[in-house]
Structure formats: structure tokens, C-alpha cells
Design a protein around this nucleic acid. Sequence first.
DNA 1: GTCTATATACTGATAGAC
DNA 2: GTCTATCAGTATATAGAC
Lengths: 202, 202
Amino acid sequence: MYSDCVSTPERLIEATRELLWERGYVGTSPKAILQRAGAGQGSMYHHFTGKPELALAAVRRTAQEMRATAEAVLGGPGSPCERIESYLRRERDVLRGCPVGRLTMDPEVVASDALRAPVDETLDWLRERLAGIVEEGQELGEFGSALDGEEIAATIVATVQGGYVLARASGSAAAFDTGIRGLLSLLTPRAPGHDSPTRPRT
Amino acid sequence: MYSDCVSTPERLIEATRELLWERGYVGTSPKAILQRAGAGQGSMYHHFTGKPELALAAVRRTAQEMRATAEAVLGGPGSPCERIESYLRRERDVLRGCPVGRLTMDPEVVASDALRAPVDETLDWLRERLAGIVEEGQELGEFGSALDGEEIAATIVATVQGGYVLARASGSAAAFDTGIRGLLSLLTPRAPGHDSPTRPRT
DNA sequence: GTCTATATACTGATAGAC
DNA sequence: GTCTATCAGTATATAGAC
């Protein structure tokens, strides 16, 4: 818990962030939040108008955090290709899923423009950031010039998000890693033994 | 609803399938199921021991249906590459998400071996099926021999599953299609203008 | 087989004491 | 600011009439 670390609103937001990650919006009750935060009903309804507002604060912070984590790698040193590989290989709590992406499977989040907005904006930002890096890499000859930056960026983000699904289904992080290795093998074909087809399929 | 089509157990299962797809397990109450099925409490608890058993019947059927739908394309006519492309481009209710994959974000499903099993088995079957087709395509020279069938299969399934996430986040099916196009461009590089790098990155 | 009652616990929130 | 009390409604069943 956070019972003796920070202010009550802060503890409420952190407890909500954890529960939204573990159980989603529909699966998270105010009672569970209060217990985890070590607060009473009165505190929560004093600082927030209710569950929706508290969840919004939590989602915004989680989205911001994910963005910062990604930027730390994507804006770091290395060639475009290396930065994308670092992003894909970065350490993740795979079996917990993506705290932002998982919200898209929650009916109440998707139904609320306010709650969905931070999710949408974060994934959109990530795609654009990756698209720019792919295009940068194309100018350096790291990626085929026939590729479309935005498409590849969407594929990268989708593979990561779907990797969480495979991992959670199987109960093992291995499936996530397998999907990522496959994507990397497509993005960075190995030379000199590489023999990708030079003609379209028959 | 199904009030006058089939047997009561059947209506209960179909109503549960819809609700699990829309709202997940934690977001689906027996009351909602009964209303959608047009049945009373007594009927449900006469035919099923409770929500978990009913959900299990629903999940099993949904998993089986997804498998049959995939097999219809993957076992159909065409070259390996064409069949994979058909699978990726097949019509989908993108904004509704994947009725099987979305269950992996549900804490109660993941916590229950019985409920998770059909999900795991279906996604696992799909990966193995795709891996075999990729390897078949490699023998025909459609895919680079340096690729790993299981890895590419995991990437394909992950991209589809993650595509749903992107689509639901943005509220538009376009993001799904963009990710799929990116994957296809990586899987089937265009000739003769294809100029993927012949050496690893610097 | 299906229905209506009944039961216990939880959900999400409000009221008012301290 | 935080607490406890209270509340109408829901979640997930069980009991027993028909």
C-alpha cells in the first residue's frame, strides 16, 4: 500500500492505476481502491467527484508514463534501427499486459470519450514517433525504401500489443518474445545468407 | 434476442457469448445474460451451475468458431503466401475486437485454468497452423529461408490482435488495416524495385 | 423446466459528525 | 480532510411453488 508515503489523493491515484492495470475499469470498485490506498470513503469523494474522475486522473498519468518510457529509448542514442530494436527488446512486465493498451478492451473506457482520449493519444503519438524513426532509417538505407513508415509503425505497435495477448493466453512471456523476434527478423533481414524472394508470389 | 428461436440453454449460451465479447467476464452479470436471453433466474441455474460454467460453455463455442473461421481461409485454395494474405485481409468486425483475444485482458479468465484453456489452445493452434504454412511457403521460395516459421506465425497473430487494440483506441478500423498492410509489406517485399538492405545495420 | 421470492454481499454514492 | 452511517440498486446465488 501507500499508507504512509504521500498525500491521500496521490495514494488514491496510484491504487487506481494498479487496479486499472490488473482488472480494468469495470473490474475495479471504489471499495477495492480505498482498501489498497488505505483511505476511507469520505477521502475519495472529497478529492474526486467519483470513480470516473479518479480513473481519468489515473489513466492520464499511466499514459504519460508510458510515453516517457518509450521516449527514453526512442530518443536515445543509436541508429534508427537500433532504437527500434531497443524499444522492442526493452524489459517489460509482459504477463501484466500493457497498462494503456488493455484499457481498449474495457467497454466503459471505450464508451467514454474522456477516458479513451489519453489512450488514443498515447498510442497515436507512439505510432507517429516510430514512423519518423523508420523514415529516418530509410534515408540511411537501414530499411527498404518501398516500406511505408506509418504502416511499419502500426505493425510494430500492434505486434507489441498483440504480444501481450499471446503471452497472457499462454501464461508465459515466451510467446511475446517469439513474436518480437519474428518482427525483428522481418525488419532487419540478415545478410549475406538472406534470400528473400525477388519476385512476387506466383 | 433469441426468445423464440431455440432452446433455453442455447439462448443462454448465445447471450453469454455476445456479452463476453462486448464486456468481458467481469463486466457480464447473470442478470444481463438473462435479460438478453429472455429467460428467468430459475432457467439459468437449472441448466448451469452458475456464471462460471455458463461462461465456459460460451467461451468454448466462441473458440471453436474462431478456429473454424480461420481454417476456412488457411485450408482453402491458393499458395501459402496467398492464404496468409487472405487470412490477414479477411473481413472482420474490427471495432468489436477479437472475441477470443479480448478474454486475455480479463483478470478472472486468466485466473481460471478452465476458462483460459480454450483461449490458449485456440491461439496456440492458430500459431502452429500459420507456422506450417509459412514453412510450406519457404519451400516454394515465397518467404526468405532465414525466417523462422514459428516466429513469423507469432508475429502474424500478434499483429492481428494488436491491430484490434489500435482500432479500438482510435475508434476506427483504419489503424487495424494500416498495421496489416505494414506486415504484408514486410512479408511480401515488392519486386523488382525492392531494395532491402543487403548488410546488417552499421 | 420455468417462475417468483428471498438472501447475503457488494457497488457507487450521499450525509453529516468530528 | 477524514471518518462512519446510510442508501438504493446490483451481483450471484438458493428455495420452493407451479
